[in-house]
Design a protein around this nucleic acid. Structure first.
Length: 229
DNA sequence: GCGACAG
DNA sequence: ATCTTGTCGC
């Protein structure tokens, strides 16, 4: 896959924030999806010993939710973890993985927020805009906003609100299990995003896309450590 | 100043 | 994110 927009990554904190404000204007918050056959998940894992990281993209067939293709890449940390600038840490390696993938997904589920971000431009928005592909932000914890606890049944949700605007949904994907934080990434509405996340989470708290990507990066990282530390 | 703070 | 396998509980 090839990105539509390219930009520098070795930016100062201030420059990164400015770039977010600029790119945030390109986010599309309504449904512009193509018929979905393949859904992708992306994740990154970090070594405790050195600055090595593993990034992976997994492509699942929608019908079976089985992996049809995956790409794993090794890289080194180039940007610190700063809340609100997460994408500048994780997207460079993720993009390297995207460059190698052959099966183009019609939807990408990201491990982190989309619009539910201080400047409304979380990692999911950033990835979506750079590739002009539909993306969903799906985080385990919140970054911005306030909410009330959704009902305990699967599918229950309550709006995530920040500055009087709905920036996402707190969605319970399994009965009596902690909810997750879903927000628009790019080219999808919040309602449609939640529908897809529910469909992708038939058995567990997190969607199958992020679970598969998470397992892959952790397994790969442990193999690296086995032969070195 | 204090608390919050995706992974 | 990472340190950490098996184990207790729904």
């Amino acid at each position: 896959m090839e990105a539509v927009i390219r930009h520098r990554w070795n930016l100062s904190e201030m420059e990164a924030i400015e770039l977010q404000r600029e790119l945030a204007q390109k986010v599309i918050t309504e449904d512009r999806l193509d018929p979905i056959h393949h859904v992708a998940g992306v994740d990154v894992a970090y070594s405790k010993n050195n600055d090595t990281l593993i990034a992976a993209i997994v492509v699942l067939e929608l019908d079976s939710l089985k992996i049809v293709e995956s790409v794993v890449i090794e890289d080194t940390v180039q940007f610190p973890y700063i809340p609100g600038l997460f994408s500048f840490r994780e997207l460079p390696p993720i993009i390297k993985a995207f460059e190698k993938i052959k099966t183009t997904p019609q939807l990408v589920v990201c491990d982190g927020q989309g619009l539910a971000h201080p400047r409304r431009f979380g990692l999911a928005c950033h990835l979506g805009v750079l590739y002009d592909i539909p993306t969903i932000g799906c985080g385990k914890t919140k970054l911005s906003g306030n909410f009330t606890e959704p009902d305990q049944h699967r599918g229950a949700q309550s709006p995530l609100i920040d500055n009087c605007e709905i920036i996402g949904n707190v969605l319970r994907t399994q009965k009596n299990i902690n909810p997750i934080f879903v927000s628009i990434g790019h080219r999808i509405s919040l309602a449609t995003a939640c529908q897809w996340i529910l469909e992708l989470s038939p058995k567990f708290r997190l969607p199958e896309t992020t679970r598969q990507a998470d397992q892959l990066v952790k397994k790969t990282l442990s193999l690296h450590n086995h032969s070195r530390s």
